[in-house]
Amino acid sequence: MTKTIFITGASKGFGKIWTTAFLNAGYNVAATARNVETLDDLKKEFGSKILPIKLDVNDREQCFKAVQTASAHFGSIDIVINNAGFGLFGTIEETTEKEARDQIETNVFGLLWVTQAVMPIMRKQQHGHIIQISSVLGMVTLPVLGIYNASKWAVEGLSETLAAEVAGFGIKVTLVEPNGFATEWASASALHAQPMKEYDNVRASFNEGLTDDIFGVPEATTEAMLKLVRSENPPLRLFLGKMALPWVTQVYADRLKTWESWKEVAEKAHGK
Rank of each mutant, 00 (worst) to 15 (best):
M196K: 14
H127I: 00
M122C: 02
F215T: 05
D212I: 06
L210A: 14
V217E: 15
D213Y: 12
V155K: 00
N201S: 15
H127E: 05
N201H: 07
N201G: 04
A154Y: 10
M139Q: 12
P143R: 06
A188Q: 15
G170I: 09
V140Y: 07
R123G: 03
M119N: 01
S159G: 10
I147N: 00
L175Q: 06
V202I: 15
G157K: 12
F181E: 06
H192M: 11
S135T: 11
L210H: 06
A117F: 05
T141K: 02
G110T: 12
T174Y: 07
V217M: 09
S151A: 13
V114N: 03
T161M: 10
L137N: 12
I171G: 02
A190E: 13
L112R: 04
E198G: 02
V166A: 10
V136R: 04
G180H: 10
E156L: 09
K152D: 07
D213L: 03
A167M: 10
A167E: 13
N149V: 05
F215N: 07
E208N: 13
A188N: 13
L112Y: 13
G128R: 00
V176E: 08
K172A: 07
Q194V: 12
S187A: 14
S134P: 02
I130N: 00
E219K: 06
W153K: 07
E156P: 03
V136A: 14
N207P: 00
V118A: 03
M196T: 02
S151L: 04
Q116H: 10
F215P: 03
M196N: 13
